[in-house]
């Protein structure tokens, strides 16, 4: 006897939790993925800000050295 033969269709009232569960799980999967992507994006933004700060610090340091070299040359 097949499984279908021993398992009659559920009444709409009884089937609703299963249908809701399936759709909620699907939405939860998508939402989890989007959350992971958002966390990664925040991390990337932080790295960009860090890189920008390091470049600015380096440029500022380079400018000071250049000024001192120019002054030495003038003397």
């Amino acid at each position: 006897m097949s499984v279908l033969a021993v398992a009659p269709a559920l009444a709409p009232g009884k089937a609703a939790p299963y249908v809701i569960a399936a759709y909620v799980i699907f939405l939860a999967l998508v939402l989890t993925y989007v959350t992971i992507m958002a966390v990664r994006l925040v991390r990337a933004e932080r790295e960009v800000a860090e890189l920008r700060r390091e470049v600015q610090d380096r440029d500022a340091l380079g400018g000071d050295v250049e000024e001192r070299e120019l002054e030495t040359a003038r003397r």
Binding site: V3, L4, V6, Y18, A22, I25, L29
Partner: peptide, 20 residues
């Protein structure tokens, strides 16, 4: 990821429809 979704939703359907 999509196949995991298919397996889970399929299992829920199977439980409701076939009892397993």
């Amino acid at each position: 990821i999509f196949s995991v979704g298919a397996l889970i939703t399929g299992s829920i359907w199977a439980k409701a429809s076939w009892g397993h």
